[in-house]
Design a protein around this nucleic acid. Structure first.
Length: 450
RNA sequence: GUGAAUGUAGCUCAGCUGGUUAGAGCAUCAGAUUGUGGUUCUGAGGGUCGCGGGUUCGAAUCCCGUCUUUCACCCCA
């Protein structure tokens, strides 16, 4: 016998947890659908050639690879095997891998299905992804991503739409958030205005850490990466601006700075037509995931919970380029479902009534009542009541305990007397009251909300 | 990839500087209660102390190795 255990970074979900997760995903789906996004699904497995090279060296290392079937060593790269070069060997023995995110498979999907979809194509996708990362708090090797993207349009209307989705979704979930917005061109403008255009990546890597390590440490790190101390000070000064207007004097001289400011202005202008319940804040210090974002960028942070980002996204201009379809612009956002779940759990934001599913348990006391109970159960079920019959004739306290453990609100007790009179005992498990009712009354009673 | 912890009953954990038969709570099962759950009381079952080696008269306890899991960093959701 082997001791049961799970691979690291994976979890079982109990019924109550699955119900909560469905509730969360359900709300997201409703918001997505209402904004005109449609669902797609892609396989868990992709070809390694689809996945490798898309996430940088680090990402390639974290890909789960799937061994080829059969005697896969026959085709193994012998030289790599002898050199113990695992990475090189993998290419010859694993032609498939588990998807690492939903964005790259989506890019493949768009390229392969471009004849079947109409642009702009608005899709959402809620599926698990896998990463061979070291797990830690709130981070798993298998987790769900909820992505929402539009491809095939450069219109800034979609930026506004996606911000509206964030606002509505978090409001409906009951989480108060700040939606931070920035633009890659503004960051480029800041670099240019500080005379360090050549150090753009160094700059963004550093300022991304601002809220984590503080101003002084960011300054120090910028200098360490070859940015002059004065330029670093200038950068820090510029990224602390809280309004677009205050950046205009410094950035309007640079082409990219102007472009970024114009874009964001246009987005904010469109947002005036939306009803937004959450704060949307311009934050020039936001420098997230810049490796593939080319325009607008966004990140969502909970206001009342100590938790990293609950979601993020941005515009990218060349999603499908690596699959041979250039110039397809896109903009998208992602919800960090696992973290949102944790925040909602810690703030007790799930409705109380999503735990139990069964509304009535039928308990029979003798073999004839068992048969009678089957018919009653079916009657209740066809009256849209979630009903179930206790399957064995046992001491009643056992079946009552079962009803109690499952939080079933009503128990229908059927014995000889009930059978003869046609009036069944209905016990309300919350109040403990019990009364004898005919089936019709009983159904009405169970369906009446408390 | 770097660093630090951890591992004892199904679960959460106690077990002092080594000393007979390894404990508790929860959970399970049975009874108090032969037609009534939650609370309570009584009892029962359940352990190769992660695995391997070493020190010792004696190891859950000390040492070494190994595996597992967790936490932090990197990175990221």
């Amino acid at each position: 016998m082997t001791k049961p255990s799970l691979p690291k970074g994976t979890r079982d979900f109990l019924p109550s947890e699955v119900m909560k997760r469905k509730y969360l995903f359900g709300i997201l789906e409703e918001v997505f659908l209402r904004h005109g996004f449609v669902p797609i699904e892609t396989p868990s497995l992709e070809l390694m050639q689809t996945l490798t090279g898309k996430y940088g060296e680090e990402g390639d290392r974290l890909l789960f690879k799937i061994l080829n079937s059969g005697n896969f060593l026959e085709e193994a790269d012998v030289a790599a095997l002898e050199q113990k070069d695992s990475f090189k060997l993998a290419g010859s023995i694993a032609k498939r891998g588990l998807r690492y995110d939903l964005t790259v498979p989506f890019a493949r999907f768009v390229v392969m299905n471009r004849d079947k979809i109409s642009f702009p194509f608005k899709r959402y996708q809620i599926q698990p992804v896998w990463r061979a990362d070291r797990p830690q708090k709130g981070r798993y090797q298998e987790f769900y991503q909820c992505d929402c993207d539009v491809v095939g349009s450069k219109s800034l209307l979609y930026e506004a739409d996606l911000l509206s989705i964030y606002s509505q979704a978090f409001s409906r979930l009951g989480i108060e958030v700040a939606i931070h917005v920035n633009h890659r061109a503004i960051l480029a403008g800041i670099a240019e205005a500080s005379g360090i255009a050549g150090h753009f990546t160094d700059m963004t890597v550093c300022i991304d850490k601002l809220d984590k390590i503080g101003e002084a440490a960011v300054h120090e790190e910028m200098v360490k990466r070859g940015i002059g101390p004065e330029a670093a000070t200038r950068v820090l000064q510029l990224i602390q601006s809280t309004t677009l207007e205050s950046l205009i004097p410094s950035l309007s001289g640079t082409a990219s700075g102007k472009k970024g400011i114009d874009d964001l202005k246009a987005i904010f202008n469109m947002l005036k037509g939306y009803t937004l319940q959450q704060e949307i804040r311009f934050d020039p210090a936001l420098a997230r995931g810049l490796s593939y974002y080319t325009g607008f960028i966004v990140e969502v942070v909970a206001k009342n919970a100590k938790m990293g980002s609950l979601g993020g996204g941005g515009r990218y201009d060349n999603l499908t380029g690596s699959f041979g379809l250039p110039d397809v612009p896109g903009v998208g956002i992602s919800f960090g479902a696992e973290r949102i779940f944790d925040v909602m759990e810690s703030m007790d934001l799930f409705p109380k009534n999503i735990g139990g599913s069964l509304q009535a348990l039928i308990v029979a006391l003798d073999p004839e009542s068992m048969e009678y109970g089957i018919r009653i159960t079916q009657t209740l079920r066809s009256s849209e009541i979630a009903a179930d019959q206790y399957p064995e004739l046992v001491k009643m306290n056992k079946s009552m305990k079962y009803a109690n453990d499952l939080k079933i609100p009503f128990v229908v007790i059927i014995g000889e007397e009930e059978r003869n009179t046609g009036r069944l005992s209905l016990k309300d498990m919350v109040s403990g009251n019990q009364e004898k009712l005919e089936v019709g009354e009983l159904i009405k009673k169970i369906k009446t909300p408390i």
